[in-house]
Design a protein around this nucleic acid. Structure first.
Lengths: 148, 148
DNA sequence: ATATTTGATAGAGCTAACTCTAGGTCAATA
DNA sequence: TATTGACCTAGAGTTAGCTCTATCAAATAT
């Protein structure tokens, strides 16, 4: 069972243009072509690989790093340690991103409180509170371990 | 008390180039200039404003939207509702980002487990587990409320 | 008083990640 | 069989967000 690029675009939400672009950039060298027509034929395994690529991209990893990772995968078992290290490192990255998101969320919450008061009073001048409260120090690592 | 652009760059971690670029893009119209020399003179209030801008940028808001927000701030009290709505909306955005980050984290954790086994076995072929486990449905909103 | 540093502007250059166009091939349908 | 539609490549164009250069003015250090 294989899928055309259009079908994959529908299933994945990635545009046909982008799928071809990724292929050109070396992100999907595993996708085979039809011998006669040269058309791409995606397998289910290819779709799984694509979802890993999407995950890494979602963490902000640039395409050339993702390409390196894919190359490692193609290079076989002697890159296993390297790939493990990559994911362990990326875990740190994501945890830091969540930390930043939580800090942003906190700041946004303060702003929401601030503007609620201001809207109620009809003017900003009536609002007294400072916007920069002291940061709380969430033990992020533990919390995230708990969430998963 | 005012700060030069170089001092602000140091304090904020934003490069001088970028600070000038933001100013050119209309993100910091509130920063006054020295009458005689034309140099920018940042106040403490300006730094606070800048930290809000940094927060919004950190949530992925594009610069032109941030500029609109800043313009609302300059336009005074009749934009209060609009500004409240903006932050309420941005809160949703950040919560969704955290959700995506947690899903990515989960996938990465599975990969880490996978590669640990593979490294131990010396080959990928020995690893049996599927990589795409069913998603857990964390009640994200409540959890985040709890964290803050 | 002079030299160095810091700041200013205008505008060019750069990178990443698409996004689209042109011109062609191949496959599926009326 | 003819036509429509999906796919192909090469390469140009686009956007966001910086980043840097050239050139000049002002401030600070020696």
């Amino acid at each position: 069972m294989t899928y055309s690029i259009g079908t994959v675009a529908e299933k994945s939400g990635i545009s046909i243009y982008t799928l071809r672009y990724y292929d050109k950039m070396g992100l999907t060298p595993f996708v085979k072509r039809n011998e006669a027509s040269g058309r791409r034929e995606f397998t289910d395994s290819d779709l799984n690989f694509l979802s890993v690529i999407t995950c890494l991209k979602g963490t902000g990893m640039p395409l050339n790093e993702i390409r390196n990772f894919v190359q490692c995968c193609m290079d076989g078992d002697n890159t296993l340690n390297q790939r493990l290290a990559l994911f362990e490192n990326q875990k740190e990255v994501v945890i830091n991103q969540i930390g930043e998101s939580l800090r942003n969320l906190q700041k946004i919450d303060h702003k929401i409180e601030y503007y609620k008061k201001a809207v109620k009073a009809g003017t900003e001048k009536a609002v007294t509170g400072k916007n920069n409260l002291p940061e709380n120090h969430v033990p992020l690592n533990e919390l995230i371990d708990e969430l998963l």
